[in-house]
């Protein structure tokens, strides 16, 4: 097993309804639902609550456990920092003043940031559930049903396959470097930032040469098996109607909630 797999893989093996659903239904459903969430306007709390409502149901159906989904959903949290300034810059009714600074927070600002955070959180939760219940190869296969150009899908599939090979190589190089990055008493270790960046750059250069040579070997091996630039895929089994219906139901629900919000 690739040493990186333990760090990178997001799929969680379980026996559940969501795991069994076809990726060709799940991926468009998650994407459609996230798009619906993106449309939420500031301060539409009821809409946000209604859009959040399916999430606990999906978590229960997936048997992933709330703790795992919650923990992973915090990934996007640091990005909130880009929105926080709105609390103080949006004009409106003053709510509180930040001590020592003289900056006042406005109710409108708080409302805007809260909406952004809620939107982001519901979207991330949806994506976390999708990725934890669907093996990566099936997600990549589902891209084909979304009409992504075949060359791009093949490139992405190759990238996924060799990510672990090249990534392991990178990780071994980093370990070998760190292992020689020693400190002795009485001397300042590590020299300058520029020197360290240069070392990282040489490692990147060396990784590039090795990756390029690897791609040449991969190409030769493909040719040896009869490859002439045309990529063939195994034919996909038909998409079960019930899976399609369940996926469509989620998207329809999101669209309906938004339609109600915009028409109100």
């Amino acid at each position: 097993m690739s040493a990186l797999a333990g760090f990178l893989d997001r799929y969680q093996e379980r026996e559940s309804l969501l795991h069994r659903l076809d990726a060709r239904a799940k991926l468009p459903a998650a994407l459609g639902f996230i798009v619906a969430v993106t449309f939420t306007r500031e301060g539409e709390w009821l809409t946000l609550a209604l859009l959040f409502a399916p999430i606990p149901l999906l978590v229960a159906l997936s048997r992933l456990g709330a703790a795992l989904v919650l923990r992973r959903s915090l990934l996007a949290l640091p990005f909130v920092a880009t929105a926080i300034p709105l609390v103080f810059t949006r004009p409106g009714d003053p709510v509180f003043e930040l001590p020592l600074t003289g900056w006042t927070a406005s109710a409108e600002g708080i409302r805007a940031v809260a909406t952004i955070m809620a939107r982001a959180w519901i979207a991330v939760l949806t994506a976390v559930i999708l990725v934890a219940t669907t093996p990566a190869v099936e997600l990549l296969r589902a891209l084909r049903s979304l009409r992504v150009p075949a060359l791009l899908i093949s490139t992405i599939s190759f990238a996924y396959r060799y990510l672990y090979v090249v990534g392991d190589e990178a990780q071994r190089m980093i370990r070998a470097r760190d292992s020689r990055s020693a400190t002795i008493p009485g001397a300042r270790a590590g020299r300058s930032v520029a020197w360290r960046a240069g070392v990282a750059g040489r490692m990147v250069g060396s990784l590039f040469v090795r990756s390029l040579e690897r791609s040449e070997r991969v190409y030769a091996a493909m040719q040896a098996r009869g490859y002439h630039g045309e990529l063939r895929f195994l034919h996909n089994p038909p998409l079960p109607r019930t899976d399609l219906a369940l996926g469509a139901a989620l998207v329809a629900y999101g669209a309906l909630v938004q339609a109600a919000a915009y028409l109100r």
């Binding site: 060359l151 490139t155 996924y160 990780q171 390029l212 630039g229």
Partner: peptide, 20 residues
């Protein structure tokens, strides 16, 4: 013909280079 193996492995390389 080289497009897919070259660009695929190169994408893996950029991904890994971001770890450096």
């Amino acid at each position: 013909e080289r497009a897919v193996p070259l660009m695929g492995v190169m994408a893996a390389f950029i991904f890994a280079a971001q770890m450096m």
